[in-house]
Computed example of a mutant assay.
Amino acid sequence: MEYVDVAVIGGGQSGLAAAHGLLTKGLRPVVLEASGRTAGSWPEYYNSLTLFSPGRYSSLPGLPFGGNPDRYPHRDEVVSYLSRYAERLGVDIRTGHRVNAVRTAGEGFELDLADGQHLGARAVVAATGGFGQPNRPALPGLDTFTGAVLHVSQYRSPAPFAGRRVVVVGVGNSAVQVAVELADTARVSLATRAPVRWFPQRPFGRDLHFWLTATGLDAAPLGRFQRHPATMAVIDDGRYRAALAAGRPDRRPMFTRIDGASVTWADGAREDVDAIVLATGYLPDLGYLAPLGALDVAGRPRHRDGASLAHPGLAHVGLEW
């Protein structure tokens, strides 16, 4: 069995940044990526996705994003950048290597790969991120819905929904962006449990990330506060708020039930709909750590600031917030 210094599980932006950091410490990481490319989840996001952080705040360590530093890169630019980063990193990156399980082995770990191979490692970095497992909430009657149900991770463009009645569930950035895009060609409602909260993308003429960096508020405590549903805000340059104010889409309190092809709204009205898009976030994709006892009952890692509370040689990078 082959042994390595550090096995980094996941070859997206988190795994690549972790590998860069390990190199600066004189270690020789091996990056294991399940897919056939080093771009994480980015190639699978919807076609129109654009970052709300400018290029100057979107770079990984050691390589500027390139181009106009004040522009907001789109999905394909991010994919291209990550591929370029991986090529220049100078690290052993193995695509098509899915990790099924990580177990303790002596003072280190043994990784079981999907192809039957095994890899020994002195340490492990779990960098599969917070976007590998779509969160599909147990909405009343959802399993009986006769229309189309898809998570936002499966959404690509509004073309298949033209002229249809669509409900988008969620209150975050993706929910609002997708609902507004769909409203150009479909009849759309944004269903939320609370009103949408807004935060300007460029307060006082400078990008939000400039102010967060200048004030030091981009630290972890702010992220934990922002994670709470009561304080989560949609970052907006004015377009999305105006679209909702114009009723394209309209925002409604969350429906109470689904029956066949219809939803029952909070006011008791029933309406047939063609599709429900769940923009309801993601869960950590860390099932391979279950043999270590490193996860809680909800499948989330037991850690403090990325350091595992279960094993000193295990670290987490890329978790939400």
Results as ranks from 00 to 15, higher is better:
residue 235 I to Q: 11
residue 230 A to H: 11
residue 232 M to E: 14
residue 239 R to T: 15
residue 227 R to S: 07
residue 217 L to M: 14
residue 222 L to R: 05
residue 230 A to I: 10
residue 201 Q to D: 01
residue 213 T to V: 09
residue 207 D to E: 00
residue 221 P to Y: 02
residue 212 L to P: 03
residue 230 A to L: 11
residue 218 D to W: 03
residue 228 H to W: 07
residue 230 A to V: 13
residue 221 P to R: 04
residue 233 A to G: 03
residue 238 G to H: 07
residue 213 T to K: 13
residue 218 D to C: 04
residue 213 T to R: 13
residue 233 A to D: 01
residue 221 P to G: 05
residue 196 V to R: 13
residue 200 P to T: 10
residue 202 R to F: 01
residue 224 R to D: 15
residue 226 Q to V: 15
residue 226 Q to W: 15
residue 218 D to K: 05
residue 229 P to R: 13
residue 216 G to V: 08
residue 199 F to A: 14
residue 238 G to K: 09
residue 220 A to M: 11
residue 216 G to T: 09
residue 240 Y to K: 10
residue 231 T to S: 13
residue 223 G to Y: 12
residue 208 L to C: 02
residue 226 Q to P: 01
residue 234 V to F: 05
residue 221 P to V: 01
residue 238 G to W: 06
residue 217 L to S: 09
residue 232 M to I: 03
residue 215 T to M: 06
residue 216 G to D: 12
residue 214 A to C: 05
residue 207 D to T: 00
residue 227 R to L: 09
residue 237 D to V: 10
residue 199 F to K: 08
residue 222 L to Q: 01
residue 216 G to M: 11
residue 217 L to V: 07
residue 207 D to F: 00
residue 227 R to V: 02
residue 203 P to E: 07
residue 234 V to N: 04
residue 239 R to D: 12
residue 220 A to G: 07
residue 227 R to K: 14
residue 209 H to N: 08
residue 208 L to P: 06
residue 222 L to E: 04
residue 222 L to A: 05
residue 196 V to W: 11
residue 198 W to I: 07
residue 236 D to Y: 02
residue 223 G to V: 09
residue 215 T to S: 15
residue 223 G to T: 03
residue 205 G to W: 03
residue 237 D to Q: 11
residue 240 Y to M: 14
residue 197 R to S: 13
residue 233 A to N: 01
residue 231 T to V: 07
residue 227 R to W: 05
residue 229 P to T: 08
residue 237 D to M: 10
residue 214 A to G: 06
residue 238 G to M: 04
residue 222 L to D: 05
residue 225 F to T: 06
residue 227 R to F: 04
residue 232 M to S: 12
residue 231 T to D: 09
residue 206 R to K: 09
residue 213 T to F: 10
residue 200 P to A: 07
residue 214 A to T: 06
residue 234 V to Q: 04
residue 201 Q to I: 04
residue 223 G to S: 07
residue 217 L to D: 11
residue 202 R to D: 03
residue 215 T to L: 15
residue 226 Q to Y: 15
residue 218 D to Y: 02
residue 207 D to H: 06
residue 208 L to F: 12
residue 204 F to P: 05
residue 230 A to C: 08
residue 228 H to R: 15
residue 231 T to M: 10
residue 196 V to P: 09
residue 211 W to C: 05
residue 216 G to I: 08
residue 220 A to R: 13
residue 201 Q to L: 15
residue 199 F to E: 13
residue 220 A to N: 08
residue 201 Q to M: 14
residue 196 V to S: 14
residue 214 A to D: 04
residue 213 T to P: 00
residue 222 L to G: 00
residue 231 T to G: 03
residue 226 Q to S: 15
residue 240 Y to N: 14
residue 231 T to H: 15
residue 211 W to R: 04
residue 217 L to K: 04
residue 213 T to L: 10
residue 223 G to D: 04
residue 220 A to W: 13
residue 218 D to A: 11
residue 219 A to H: 14
residue 220 A to F: 14
residue 214 A to V: 02
residue 214 A to I: 03
residue 199 F to W: 10
residue 213 T to Y: 10
residue 202 R to V: 04
residue 216 G to F: 10
residue 231 T to E: 09
residue 215 T to G: 13
residue 227 R to I: 00
residue 196 V to T: 15
residue 228 H to G: 03
residue 201 Q to N: 02
residue 201 Q to C: 02
residue 234 V to W: 01
residue 200 P to W: 08
residue 228 H to K: 13
residue 233 A to M: 06
residue 235 I to C: 12
residue 196 V to Q: 12
residue 201 Q to P: 00
residue 218 D to Q: 07
residue 204 F to D: 07
residue 203 P to I: 03
residue 232 M to P: 02
